[in-house]
Computed example of a mutant assay.
Amino acid sequence: MIRRDTPMLRWLSLVAAFLFMVLPFPDWISALRPFLLSLVVAYWVLETPQKMGLGRVFLIGLLLDLASFSMLGEHALRLLLIAGILHLMRSRFRFYPVWQQSGFLMLMLYADLAALWLMRLSQGVPMVQAEIWGSPILAFLIWPWLYMLLDNLRLQNRGR
């Protein structure tokens, strides 16, 4: 089967996830908001690693830092760590069942939150809210649906 690139779908999904991350929500919802951009980046790293390299992931993270007025490099480092681990484990990760992928991503997002906590602790800035620790659980629930949606859209566009 010939794999065609779907750049329009890739960039539209990244822009949609980016907007989800920067749109203002009430504080209680914002704390539970999953790091959706990391899930979309994870999908594209797994499916098109040659098009979603670490340099692009870093630039996407820097753009999110600028748009969200966070410390420059915070989101870039977080996305880079997630994408780097997925690049290393791609050949095995793609063949896990979706629920195992979801569990692994949840653990990665908890490690990501721990790294964020350490970064903010070193700066003397407290974490925003305790509810943020529930966001990887939502990511665990979202991943199978997001994976199926993007995969179906990518396969439909491949035939064109």
Rank of each mutant, 00 (worst) to 15 (best):
M1Y: 08
I2W: 10
R3G: 06
R4W: 07
T6P: 10
P7R: 05
M8Y: 11
L9W: 03
R10C: 06
R10F: 05
L12P: 05
S13R: 00
S13T: 01
L14E: 00
A17D: 04
F18N: 03
L19T: 10
V22H: 05
V22K: 01
L23Q: 08
L23N: 01
P24D: 13
F25M: 15
F25I: 02
P26L: 10
P26I: 11
D27A: 15
D27W: 01
D27C: 05
I29S: 09
S30V: 03
A31V: 13
R33M: 09
P34T: 05
P34S: 02
F35W: 12
L36W: 05
L36G: 08
L36N: 04
L39F: 02
L39E: 06
V41H: 03
V41S: 01
W44I: 01
V45Y: 03
L46T: 12
E47R: 06
E47Q: 14
E47W: 03
Q50N: 14
Q50W: 09
K51T: 09
K51D: 14
G53P: 04
L54D: 00
R56V: 01
R56H: 08
V57L: 02
V57S: 04
F58C: 06
I60H: 04
G61T: 08
G61K: 02
G61C: 01
L62A: 09
L62F: 10
L63D: 02
D65Y: 10
D65K: 07
A67S: 11
F69V: 14
F69T: 11
S70H: 06
M71D: 00
L72K: 09
G73K: 00
G73M: 01
E74R: 09
E74I: 02
H75V: 07
H75I: 07
A76E: 07
R78V: 13
L81V: 02
I82Q: 11
I82K: 03
I82R: 13
I82D: 11
A83F: 02
I85C: 01
L86A: 12
H87P: 03
H87Y: 11
H87E: 09
L88Y: 13
L88K: 12
L88Q: 12
M89K: 12
M89G: 12
S91A: 14
S91L: 14
S91H: 14
R92M: 06
F93S: 01
F95I: 09
Y96V: 10
Y96H: 15
W99Y: 15
W99T: 12
Q100T: 11
Q101N: 08
S102R: 06
S102Q: 09
S102N: 05
S102L: 08
G103L: 15
L107N: 02
L109G: 10
Y110R: 04
L113H: 08
A114N: 09
A114E: 13
A115Y: 14
A115F: 13
W117V: 03
W117G: 06
W117P: 00
M119F: 15
M119I: 15
R120F: 15
R120A: 00
L121D: 12
S122F: 06
G124S: 13
P126H: 06
I132S: 14
G134A: 14
S135P: 10
I137Y: 13
L141N: 05
W143N: 03
P144E: 15
W145Y: 11
M148Y: 12
M148W: 12
D151I: 10
D151F: 14
D151R: 08
L153W: 11
R154M: 02
L155M: 11
Q156W: 05
G159P: 04
G159E: 02
G159C: 00
G159I: 03
